[in-house]
Design a protein around this nucleic acid. Structure first.
Lengths: 123, 123
DNA sequence: CTGAATCCCTCGCGATACTG
DNA sequence: CAGTATCGCGAGGGATTCAG
């Protein structure tokens, strides 16, 4: 919970009894904030991938940003990072247990995105 | 679709047949990017609210930012803005039709947030 | 009450180059 | 292949003031 010292006053939506409680929505907002986070997660749904695999499918991300976002997701325990001591280096990223639990969120997002697109087109 | 001229190359996840197609996940990412968006939407789930009502429950947001985020959500057609010609001014914000469709996403997010919190606590 | 207008600054993000 | 290291820009965000 280190990173998520969230002031309860950030959000009065969940009228939690205890003060200084974490608001779930604020938490999710923080976890998913970042230009490439949900795309990375979405891409890992089908199984672990190597760094280059992820990068290949997110052509507009720079190495720095990809590393950055992966580290952040790793800190939040959504993904794991496994280094194979081989040469050339091989690093694998995959969803953790708690990372897998976010899949429904991603799926719902994807459904909404498609619905949004078709709704707009039909105007 | 004005705002969402999304290069297909941003995302190879949905292997759409047509090039320059919009990736649903990129779309959702753009729609929800912003520090207060999902909190505002989540708060409007229970019905329309006045500006001051929203502000009261998001104590750390400034007037400028709240206005800013509301305008953005309005541009994306997620919320409507209704001005009552009275004095003092009364402005009401509520979910549009396409805004209502995002509720499942918010609910799933909220569930995940709670699960995340309890999982962390049990470590 | 609900804004708009300013000023200002952090930091997210990108471009580029270098390493084991 | 999978990273670090630097530099720097610009947007996102915050504090304050003014207005209808």
């Amino acid at each position: 919970m280190e990173k998520f010292i969230i002031e309860h006053k950030d959000c009065y939506i969940d009228d939690d009894t205890s003060p200084h409680e974490v608001c779930p929505m604020v938490l999710v907002q923080k976890i998913l904030s970042g230009k490439w986070k949900i795309l990375i997660l979405w891409y890992l749904v089908n199984g672990p991938l190597r760094f280059s695999d992820i990068k290949r499918n997110l052509p507009n991300v720079t190495q720095k940003m990809l590393t950055n976002q992966l580290r952040s997701l790793e800190e939040d325990n959504l993904i794991y990072r496994k280094v194979y001591p081989v040469v050339p280096p091989k690093v694998e990223y995959g969803l953790t247990e708690i990372g897998n639990k976010i899949i429904p969120v991603l799926k719902t997002m994807h459904d909404y995105g498609q619905e949004y697109i078709s709704d707009i087109k039909n105007e």
